[in-house]
Every structure is written in structure tokens, then in C-alpha cells.
Nucleic acid binder design. Structure first.
Length: 116
DNA sequence: CCTATGACTGGTC
DNA sequence: TGACCAGCCATAG
């Protein structure tokens, strides 16, 4: 029966599923490569870069998703504080190098979905 | 219900 | 390259 819960459209699972699409694309990024929020949003219909950033922000640093491979269009980490430092460390551990300005060269590590 | 903010992007100057 | 503006969706108060 009712159990006291109406659950008209159970929003909880629905939202998680939507984020799952974003995580799936992020997980598609190979080792030693990086992608931008817009790039991820491009692979997820009805999803905007804002949404991607929000989905990743809701993630945990110990998540199974390689969120550290996601950077902004400037080729730089957008995470504030220690979180950004941690991301740089991870990228560095994957063989990703930074420019003189601390930016990543997309021509060198820019991920392309040519394997789709 | 409305307003404000955010791990953003694209176009224009 | 950097600054400004508008669009986008979700979460928080």
C-alpha cells in the first residue's frame, strides 16, 4: 500500500540517473587526457556546462569518477582551494604537463571522442 | 513562489 | 588574453 509515501515521480532516482550520464562521459576520458565542462555537456543532451560542474561538485573526492580530468575552457583547474591543488597533483600523476601559466595544452592532452 | 549563487561557455570588444 | 554580458539548470534560503 501506501506506506505514507506518495512518490509521484520519485525525483531522487531520476536525478541520480541524469548525473550518471555525466559521470559516464567523464569515465570515458582515457588516462592522460583531459576534457572541458562544455565537452562533457556536448555529449549529454539537455545538459549545460553549469550542470556538469554541479554534478561534479556533488561528487566525492574518492568517487570512482575521474573528475580530476575535467577542467574549464581555459585549460586550467576551476576548483578553489586545496581541491584544485589535489586535482593538479592527480593530473600530474597521469603524465599531464602544465604550461608556463599553469595551463594544460589541449593540443597535447585534449580528449577527442573519435573512438565513439 | 521567488531570488541568489555556482567546479561554465560563447560571443563581442 | 582579458573583461563584460546573457543563457543555462539545480540547489539553497
Amino acid at each position: 500500500m501506501n506506506s505514507g509515501v506518495s512518490s509521484p515521480d520519485e525525483p531522487s532516482p531520476s536525478q541520480e540517473k541524469k548525473y550518471d550520464a555525466i559521470y559516464a562521459v567523464v569515465a570515458r576520458v582515457p588516462f592522460g587526457c583531459v576534457a572541458t565542462y562544455g565537452q562533457i555537456a556536448t555529449y549529454v543532451p539537455r545538459c549545460t556546462p553549469r550542470q556538469v560542474g554541479y554534478a561534479l561538485a556533488r561528487l566525492d573526492t574518492a568517487s570512482d569518477v575521474p573528475w580530476h580530468r575535467i577542467i574549464n575552457r581555459e585549460g586550467r583547474v576551476s576548483l578553489p582551494g586545496s581541491a584544485g591543488t589535489t586535482q593538479r597533483e592527480r593530473l600530474r600523476a597521469e603524465g599531464i604537463a602544465f604550461n608556463r601559466r599553469g595551463q594544460i595544452d589541449f593540443a597535447r592532452h585534449g580528449w577527442t571522442d573519435d573512438a565513439s
